[in-house]
Design a protein around this nucleic acid. Structure first.
Ligand SMILES: [Zn+2]
Ligand SMILES: [Zn+2]
Ligand SMILES: [Zn+2]
Ligand SMILES: [Zn+2]
Lengths: 150, 150
DNA sequence: ATTGACTCTATAGTCACTATAGAGTTTAGA
DNA sequence: TCTAAACTCTATAGTGACTATAGAGTCAAT
């Protein structure tokens, strides 16, 4: 099976598959005479595993860890648990952030009644007012927003 | 006031301020003899406005729109409302996605009881199983994930 | 032989910045 | 006055997980 068929059967894009290979999430395949990648059925499962993890918002680096654990069946699964726990907590923190954000947005929206001019718009007025009792911001970090210092 | 002081007083990084200028969210300033940017007090408010919007997860392009509306006080504020509405809906959709995701993650976590080997880990087993009745994924799009076709 | 569909690599772009290099400027103290 | 520290400047590369594109090659059918 060539890459296009694999893409179609897994719902991935062709470029994503090549990207996963480059990032060592999928092992390199043999190639045809014309240098086309040739996949066997096992790749469907492997790629589906990755897709599933991505659907759970796991980062590629987390998926890489899971894959490497999958390949050491004797190890115990502390690491899996630890990662899942950390991931869940991140997701929950993000949910809390967003819900707080949502409250603020709704409050803001309520400041604007119908058909006013921008000049009198409560939304813009509120956004332009002083910011003293607001949180410091930066609470809405992305999943892997590490500060890389090397 | 030089850029460092503005940064300190607003909680922005120096680079972010320069970035906002480059992206036309902040007007260019006059410069000192040595080509340093010089800001007056009004920039504190302007930058705070931007920060506040960003704290609400508004994209820079949305902030740009708000700023340009702020500068046409006679216009009516339909556009503000429309944008806020769309933004709120995006945030709420994202919250719903994440809550569904969270349920899945918690279910997954419950499959692993204490101290098992990877081989027997319910989490990995579940992730490796077939994917038939799962959603198609790609529901967790980022804020501005437009497909630019130009 | 040619068309069209597919594939290849390499590269640039997305977003909102951060980090760095290498240069110049200003300020304080010796 | 010299110098060192602290600051600023521009320009460029990097972040994540891809998408989009260019320009070339491959393959099957006509
Ligand atoms: Zn995670
Ligand atoms: Zn209004
Ligand atoms: Zn928005
Ligand atoms: Zn387990």
């Amino acid at each position: 099976m060539k890459i296009g068929e694999l893409a179609k059967r897994t719902g991935c894009s062709v470029q994503a598959i090549r990207y996963y290979e480059k990032e060592n999430l999928l092992p390199s395949t043999r190639r045809s005479d014309g240098n086309f990648r040739l996949y066997d059925e096992s790749y469907i499962e492997q790629l589906s595993f990755i897709r599933l993890c991505r659907g759970l918002d796991l980062s590629l680096s987390e998926v890489r860890q899971l894959l490497s654990l999958k390949n050491s069946p004797g190890a115990d699964c502390d690491e899996v648990n630890y990662m899942m726990e950390a991931h869940i907590q991140q997701v929950e923190a993000r949910i809390n952030d967003l819900m707080e954000l949502n409250d603020q947005l709704r409050a803001l929206r309520s400041y604007c009644s119908d058909q006013q001019t921008v000049e009198n718009c409560g939304i813009l007025q509120s956004l332009s007012s002083s910011v003293d009792d607001r949180p410091t911001g930066d609470t809405h970090d992305r999943h892997n927003g590490a500060t890389f210092s090397g």
